[in-house]
């Protein structure tokens, strides 16, 4: 029994049902919408958490994948009439395969260099969406809603189930990975690449794979976002989105995958609670990020655990 209650399959299930319970209990479309966004952000952040927390590879270009995922899926379903679920999947695969372009610099670059290279990638995507994306800087609409067979996910509650089900599934898989020897190898990548090479590990393939997985999750989240809001403009995909993800992962806790959902819920609901100060969101984000890096280096989860132990 104890073993059953203390594994991540059960924990993911608890997380999933609590979110649904919350959505169904409050039954406010606005609140549900925010929960959907939190789920999308959690999925994106999970990708970054795998990359950065587990494998120690910083990426400031996740906004690029989020944007590509959203735009490709929207265009596939809008212009080529591909069914939405298929378009979402195709888009996530296509967009994440571009991450090879990031993984190869990542082979040679570390730390700050990788940070700026990925930042550059995100900026390029953002510029391209502005220049050549449908509608240019003002964006485009009429993107089809998510439909599965005959069922259209019209109301936020049904989308809530979809998004958090997908998140919980990948969350479970990600924790599988983190606990496996493959996950430990990724952690070792963070600590000593040289030692890994002397053990016979092919660093290139390791990095390419983790970059693809990480950006797949973020692209998938972008695609799901497109069919939820049905209107896209480049403004949602600026580098600020990458910074938000960074904040979620850091604030939740970089050493645990739980940092992604906890940080995402926190950061997504933050602007809602700070509505009166909406104008100063950047200032508040800046304060939170700086303070959490200096005082709460291991994240909320670590902090809570310590509190419980005391």
């Amino acid at each position: 029994m104890k073993r059953f209650l203390h594994n991540h399959y059960f924990h993911s299930l608890v997380l999933f049902s609590s979110i649904l319970l919350l959505g169904f209990a409050i039954r406010d479309p606005y609140f549900t919408t925010i929960l959907v966004f939190a789920g999308l952000n959690a999925l994106s952040a999970l990708g970054l958490s795998l990359l950065m927390g587990l494998a120690g590879q910083i990426s400031l270009g996740q906004n690029g994948f989020y944007g590509l995922g959203a735009y490709i899926s929207a265009i596939l379903s809008l212009n080529l009439q591909i069914p939405v679920p298929l378009a979402v999947l195709m888009s996530a695969v296509l967009s994440s395969s571009l991450s090879v372009f990031l993984a190869i610099p990542a082979l040679r670059l570390k730390g700050h260099y990788l940070a700026v290279a990925t930042l550059g990638f995100g900026e390029i995507v953002y510029l391209l969406l502005n220049e050549w994306g449908p509608g240019g800087p003002s964006g485009f609409g009429n993107i089809p809603k998510f439909t599965m067979g005959d069922i259209a996910l019209e109301n936020p509650l049904s989308y809530l189930i979809l998004v958090w089900a997908i998140f919980s599934a990948f969350f479970t898989l990600a924790q599988n990975l983190a606990q496996s020897s493959y996950g430990k190898t990724l952690q070792a990548l963070h600590s000593s690449e040289i030692a890994l090479r002397t053990l016979g590990v092919n660093i290139l393939s390791l990095k390419v794979k983790i970059f693809i997985l990480g950006s797949f999750l973020t692209s998938l989240s972008g695609a799901l976002y497109a069919h939820f809001v049905t209107f896209l403009s480049p403004a949602s995909f600026s580098v600020f989105y990458s910074v938000l993800l960074l904040m979620m992962v850091m604030l939740g806790g970089i050493n645990t995958l739980w940092g992604a959902p906890v940080g995402a819920l926190f950061i997504t609901f933050l602007p809602e609670t700070l509505r009166p100060f909406k104008e100063y969101d950047i200032l508040i984000y800046g304060l939170i990020l700086t303070a959490s890096l200096i005082f709460l280096r291991k994240g909320i989860i670590h902090f809570l655990k310590q509190g419980i132990r005391k």
Partner: peptide, 17 residues
Amino acid sequence: PLLLILITIAFSILLRG
């Protein structure tokens, strides 16, 4: 190094704010 990168980013957002 990861923390040092993040802190310069954090400070840039703070300053921008």
